[in-house]
Design a protein around this nucleic acid. Sequence first.
DNA 1: GTAGGGTTAG
Length: 602
Amino acid sequence: MKRGGFAQILFSYQCCLKSSGTFNLFDLMSDFQHFSTNLVPNGNSPEKSRIEFGNINGVADALSIYNTMIRKKPLPNVFIFHNLLSRLVKLKQYTVAASLFNDISKLGVPVNKYTLSIVINCYCNSHRVDFGFSILAASFKLGHMPDEAMFSPLLKGLFRENRIAEAQQLFRKIVREGLCEVNNFVFGVVVDGLCKAGNSAIAIELLRVMEKGSFRPGTHEYNMIIDSLCKDRLLDSAMDLFDEMPQKSINRDVVTYNVLINGLSTFGRWKEVKALWKQMIDCNTQPNVITFSTVIDSLCKEGLADKARDVLNIMIQKNHVPNVLTYNALMDGYCLQDRVDEARKIFDSMPSKGITHSTISYNILINGYFKKMYIDEAMHLFREMPLKGLEPNVVTYNTVLQGLFRLRKCCTALEIFDEMQAASHKPDFYTYCNMLDGLCGNGLLKRALSLLDEIEKKGLNLHIHYYNIVIDGLCKYQKLDSARALLDDLPSEELVPDVITYNTIINECCAKGLLEEAKEILLKMEQRSCFPPNGVTYNIIFRGILKSGKLDEAAKFLDVMIGRGFFPDGSTADLLFSLLQKKENNHTLLNMIKKCAPNTWN
DNA sequence: GTAGGGTTAG
């Protein structure tokens, strides 16, 4: 065998991937289908390994064993290396496994198709699907026909990298050309990918197509689609799929019931939840801790924490053991009702029940305390986390930042922001929103502008919402000129003002009596904006005209507004009434009031 | 050899 043969193929394809910005995965694959000669057969038979791979618990162990292995003469056969790679996969050390594979192939150890499928999986799990494809191509060249263990990680990787169209194209190619068997594994990956990308409708279509053939989808596939439909609010379609399961002799399991109960209870369809629960027990499927926790959480979110607690008690009576998620849901329910002391009692009772607090337990309670303005308790919990071995996460920091700014503790908030970054926690979208909102809300406009500048310079993902917050802040502090300047000078072409940006400026123009400018912006929105004006826009301007006392102009504007399908909202109606009180029996006002939609007065 | 689904926080 030629030493380094595989490494060479791999290297040349990695170069090809690097040098060309775009390439066609399928061209690459068909290129290699021409080379189906068996270049590197692996004739070695498996030898029993004396190494206990299950004892490898980390990268250090794996590397040390690897170094021992490569010093042996002759080198151990591929099965031994294979066991090592598998162990690294189990430990989710995909990058390490992939780089060991590169090393192994340079040493000239002949690889087989099992090794290749492990490596494809490693690349796909470390967001390097293109490298996965180069291995697939090389696999053709080595004479190994790819199978479902190679294609499923590739499909999964494409979906994970949000390359949905390519994933669909590959799946079509697999089916059309019979590249591998479409088993439940391959099909499951595709259904999962489609559902997670919000394409549950396509997932159902695919299910129908596959059912027409010889393939039989199972409980797992149905569960994934039912869950996705529930999350897309398509509960009735979810129920239809649920109903068809027994007709097709597909077993419903506890997960089937859980996803549906979660969907129904999230939307307050409690009657159906009860019926489903009864049906579940009648069919000998026992609810589990997730079923109970789901119901507890939904009740809490509806503001029914006491009812949720009753469910918890029933759960315990029936010998189901609540977990940290169950208690967190209940704590959050009490916080939602401003009953943070009840939440605290639950928090304090958890350790005696053998339940360790999670970061989320802390986040819920910290948020609860801030909402009640109990700053000392909130900060005490925040500082306690590292002492209990829990690291605050980005949500913890965001909660603390928002709470501190709302309580006007700007200096502390700024310190926490620095502390967060020093602890290598990357601020996210919410962090920047909280910071900008907090700074603006406390009148620290210069600081807000310089933070915006910093975000721009860091080249982070800019979001129009950041600008909306600062524009609103500038308006509130009478700096309309600076607000206009910020809007006119957005730093990138992709950053487009949305309806909120324009409404904020229009609102300020109206407040300053600059009605002409407000109407000009409206015109611009109607003609050019990708965000057309909404009801709020028209209401703001209508109120502006009313306040300026030009009733005839207001009447004309109202006609235009209604003609476009927008009616006066509650506060506009209040304004019309208060004006009518001052100018009794004013015909124009009375006419305008008559034209308002009946639901405006509710 | 790969190894798929369900509950919590800002």
